[in-house]
Computed example of a mutant assay.
Amino acid sequence: MSTKLFLQYPKCSTCRNVSKWLKHNNIEVESRDITTDNPTRKELAAWIKKSGLPVSRFFNTSGRIYKEQNLKDKVKTASENELIDILASNGMVVKRPLVITGDLVLVGFNEEEWADKLK
């Protein structure tokens, strides 16, 4: 399988737990801090398309920025291009953790799904 990119925020407890889970399951990943190396617009557009998920699934809905900027309403009305621009503007707006491989995008941690698709 191709290289797996693991996008995470090191201070996020879920991300830390997933990192341990990946190590425990001998799943090698290239780790990337989403706050210091934010996904680009081009990357996000490709990942959203590849995932088959709506762009709204890529938003960190429990994050401070999401709430402060009232993105809940914007996600319902903005175009996909506008939403991708918002995601590309700040890594803290992006749902995490993410794993991206050549043919797979996993958004948010679901242990059963990750085990099925990564092992």
Rank of each mutant, 00 (worst) to 15 (best):
K50S: 09
V94R: 00
C12D: 13
K76A: 14
T61C: 02
K119E: 13
Y9C: 07
A78H: 03
T35F: 11
D85F: 07
L87T: 00
F59M: 11
N26A: 10
V105P: 04
T36G: 15
S31V: 08
N25S: 03
P10N: 14
P10E: 15
T101S: 04
D103P: 00
N26C: 02
E113L: 09
E112I: 14
D33R: 00
Q69A: 11
P39K: 02
S19F: 09
P39C: 10
N81G: 09
N70D: 15
G63I: 13
H24Q: 13
E112W: 05
R16Q: 15
D116I: 08
P97T: 04
N38E: 14
S31W: 09
R16H: 06
M92A: 04
V18M: 09
K95Y: 10
N90A: 10
N25V: 11
N38M: 12
N110D: 14
K49I: 01
A46C: 00
Y9P: 04
L22N: 06
S51A: 03
R96Y: 00
I86S: 04
A45Q: 12
E82Q: 15
A78D: 05
T101H: 01
K76T: 11
V75W: 07
A45V: 09
Q69E: 15
N26K: 07
K20G: 04
E68K: 07
D85K: 10
T3D: 14
S79L: 10
I65R: 10
V29E: 14
T36P: 02
R64I: 14
G63N: 04
V94H: 01
Q8L: 13
D116T: 14
I100Y: 00
P97K: 00
N110I: 13
N38F: 09
N17Q: 12
V55S: 05
T14L: 13
S79E: 14
G63Q: 03
W47A: 02
A115M: 12
D73Q: 04
N38Q: 13
L22C: 09
S56Q: 12
V75M: 10
G91P: 04
T40Y: 02
E113K: 05
D85Y: 01
V29M: 12
Y9H: 05
L71V: 09
Y66L: 12
D37P: 01
L71S: 05
I100H: 01
S19D: 13
V107N: 05
R96Q: 00
R64M: 11
L98Y: 01
K67A: 05
F59E: 02
T40H: 06
Y9M: 07
E112V: 10
K67H: 09
S2Q: 01
Q69C: 03
T61S: 12
L118I: 14
V55H: 03
D116H: 13
P39H: 02
N60P: 03
M92D: 04
Q8W: 14
A46H: 09
V29Q: 11
N26W: 06
N17S: 08
N90K: 04
S56K: 06
M92I: 07
K67E: 08
S51G: 04
S31G: 09
S89V: 12
E80Y: 01
E112K: 11
S13M: 11
P54I: 06
G52K: 06
C12F: 10
